[in-house]
Design a protein around this nucleic acid. Structure first.
Lengths: 243, 243
DNA sequence: TCAATAGTGTCTTTGAGACACTATCCG
DNA sequence: CGGATAGTGTCTCAAAGACACTATTGA
């Protein structure tokens, strides 16, 4: 691993290391990501994914959570390492290697613009992103979206995006919005219920017609456990500049 | 340790970045990984995954391929980024963030001990790894193995481990060895053939009974394309120190 | 001939998809 | 009552799994 005796003590210059966090949430029943407008060059005035440098003795995930909290005030959200982007010229100033994460924020937690209340931070629908993004952030966003779609099919990730209590129609809509296709109500309900991750909680929610029953995600299972898998093979498509 | 010359260096304000490469191959019909015995502290004399520092202006994957070639002389192998390990204390000397990759080496290419011919490099069966490994390399290996198993089910990765020309029994055995379970011959043949990635090449291979027909991986499809999926959901299980 | 391995055929069961039917709210 | 949305039942079809059957080699 390390070539000579204590090569690490006297290495040539080292690359800088950052974490970037793609923060997803549902808003107006549509998948959104949080972007910041850069205040300084390079890419001054251009929208970018929140992120920052990893401190010298800070765990990677800790750095990601710290950036998340600094930018949004959020903690205790779902966070997962996505991929590490290291093209030599991705930052015009110096060599920067970015460990990208993605976070899922519950629909009832995303009122965070308030703190920053300004024009330099905002939620963007994944279907209408700014044309220009800083660095390779378009690639990172696309990567994150692919991963999210892919994992949606065999994990309980979607529950991280809804409020704690939700209805089946809401859950179905979440899946449809992220996958970008319509699902059959009957088949969807069947599979969700067979998965055994729903706990009915009393009460209903009005919606114009018959009210829908309320459920909660059954906490006996941890995130990431198997839930179901749609038949069509949808692959995590990683063909990007790397790999 | 190195008080003298290194004291002149200002304490580094950036983490060091390495790439580590888990190199898989099939040997004696068993999945093996390449390990090196470390020549210098820390972990002097302990087995470790090959790897090294990323150069200042070197792409991550390039660094991985460079290390691979330096250690094994191999090029043009399948290589995929695995995960980035960044626990603050994973290297006792200084902060080191490691971007881990895994590589698949064809069975007919792995005669590379020759160059290094010594006791400090060797292939180890994944079922009988050394008790002690340097740094967090046990975790990285386990992660790589999980990923390999997981991707085996819906990609053509397995073909990267066999020789260019192979028989169906050999392919089946490869799957069985990696997945660690027995597969039904009939069902396996059916699915592989339906996937349409096999090209028959004339000739047979003796094996004690009826000779088996030879095939080649059909190059019209790129790696990573969908092939098939075993019914049982086997998950990429990432619960480790990070995530 | 038999032992050994390669390769095929087919029956059963599971589960995905389609879609119709019932239920409960509002007006 | 009808419109709207929630929720259930059921038929069909494709694919996975189990397993028996045939094929081709060497001794």
């Amino acid at each position: 691993m390390l070539e000579g005796p204590d090569a690490a003590f006297a290495p040539p210059d080292r690359p800088a290391v950052t974490v970037d966090v793609v923060i997803f949430t549902l808003q107006e029943r549509d998948l959104h990501v949080l972007l910041l407008k850069r205040r300084y060059p390079p890419y001054q005035g251009v929208w970018a994914i929140p992120g920052g440098f990893v401190k010298l003795h800070e765990a990677l995930e800790h750095a990601a959570r710290r950036e998340l909290e600094e930018e949004t005030g959020l903690h205790d959200v779902y966070l997962e390492q996505l991929y590490t982007f290291g093209a030599p010229d991705r930052d015009p100033r110096t060599r920067v290697i970015s460990v990208a994460y993605f976070a899922l924020v519950r629909a009832d937690q995303h009122q965070i613009n308030g703190s920053h209340e300004s024009s330099d931070i905002g939620w963007f629908s994944t279907r209408s992103l700014p044309q220009a993004l800083a660095f390779d952030h378009h690639e990172i966003l696309r990567f994150a979206l692919d991963r999210l779609r892919s994992k949606l099919e065999y994990t309980t990730l979607a529950f991280q995006l809804l409020s704690e209590v939700f209805t089946l129609p809401e859950l179905k809509q979440t899946y449809e919005q992220i996958l970008g296709e319509t699902l059959d109500r009957g088949n969807f309900y069947r599979k969700i219920k067979e998965a055994g991750v729903l706990e009915p909680v009393g009460g209903q929610r009005e919606s114009g017609g018959r009210p829908a029953a309320l459920y909660r995600f059954c906490s006996s299972r941890r995130e990431g456990d198997f839930v179901f898998r749609w038949r069509e093979a949808r692959l995590e498509s990683p063909p990007e500049s790397e790999r």
